[in-house]
Amino acid sequence: MGKKILIVDDELEQIDFASTVLEESGYTAISAMDGKEGMKKVKAEKPDLILLDILMPERGGIGMYHNLKHDEETKKIPVVIVTGVARGGHFDDRMVRQDQDIPAPDGYVEKPMNPDALLKMVSDLLS
């Protein structure tokens, strides 16, 4: 059994794609479609890494990131942010941290998602 990765995205297709890519490389993919469900799965399944879509309705992505980082039980789990919003190719941590004293995300992948880049980032973070 490979390492367990939680994909949180409000688009089923995105989950379908990411989980296929990850499972093909030997990971176990689990998924959730909003922040609330995502936190439940984190607690229940204790994933090794979280792939989190930042642009979900009602600040779902940012909210979940903050919940993760404020919770002793979950703050150490690496989080990769999936975003369509990159300013000039650079990701701005402030958009995710919202001026709070929490660590920056461990990585970013941009939509449309490049599978090789995703796999490399995941393998680097989990090694």
Partner: peptide, 20 residues
Amino acid sequence: AHYTKNILNGLQGGVYIVNT
């Protein structure tokens, strides 16, 4: 542009899985 990027995202995903 945003919307088509989203579609492109899906298309590329589909193509990747077909290729795999």
